[in-house]
Write a protein that binds this DNA or RNA. Sequence first.
DNA 1: ATTGAACAACTCCTTAAAAAGTTAGTGATG
DNA 2: CATCACTAACTTTTTAAGGAGTTGTTCAAT
Lengths: 120, 120
Amino acid sequence: MAMRKLSSTNYYNQTFLEDKCALNELIHLLSKRWLTEVMFSIEEGNSRFSSLKEDLKHISDNILADRLKLLEQYKLIVRNNHLGEVPARVEYSLTETGEKLSELLGGLCSFAENEMEFPS
Amino acid sequence: MAMRKLSSTNYYNQTFLEDKCALNELIHLLSKRWLTEVMFSIEEGNSRFSSLKEDLKHISDNILADRLKLLEQYKLIVRNNHLGEVPARVEYSLTETGEKLSELLGGLCSFAENEMEFPS
DNA sequence: ATTGAACAACTCCTTAAAAAGTTAGTGATG
DNA sequence: CATCACTAACTTTTTAAGGAGTTGTTCAAT
């Protein structure tokens, strides 16, 4: 999706923060739009590209593909290629780490809903 | 810091997700660079603009000002203007909600450090 | 007593970089 | 030839950074 510029202050500051604390790296991942929704949707049983696409109405193909790739890279989901079966298909599911993260995010979510006040 | 374009798909999707679940709104806030670090720094006792600036070496004035304003709007910190005293000064501190969030983020942080594997 | 430099806590404007979205297209399978 | 699971190229929108300027107070020298 386009190369990053390694010489910018922008990049420097980001890596500075990510080196300082892993939380920054995690938040940066989670902040990619649709990413948590993709995770939750997989958790709820939408295991295929097309059903995820249908479930997350407004997501576009390239973004969904990118988010799946990211989640896989970070070992939060696994990609299963069922080549032997007819029809051949790809299925995604959460890893243990993914499930644990999902649980933690559940906690954050109820905090957000019950204890935060979002301005106008 | 510049107006948002309300007619874009970008904006539409963001509000769609934020309406769907408050977690998205919270993550969007947390993903603003330096924001969590500003919170933690205040928690550790850096209560003034200048000491925060010093603590977070590479942050620039306008970003620090913006993050403080955001944190205040979301009621995670309070701004105290000590006008009566000499020298007059401004002090920031965490609210109860802010402290609670900080604790939750602590949990996420140890998850990130201990259970996640970040690619290369 | 007034001028001036220094600092605190910002704001405003511009530019650069990253992220999201749009459109079109690919290769495999049935 | 239609569907699935994508990829690539391009445009638009958003975010971060850079730098100058502002208001108000303190302290020191003229």
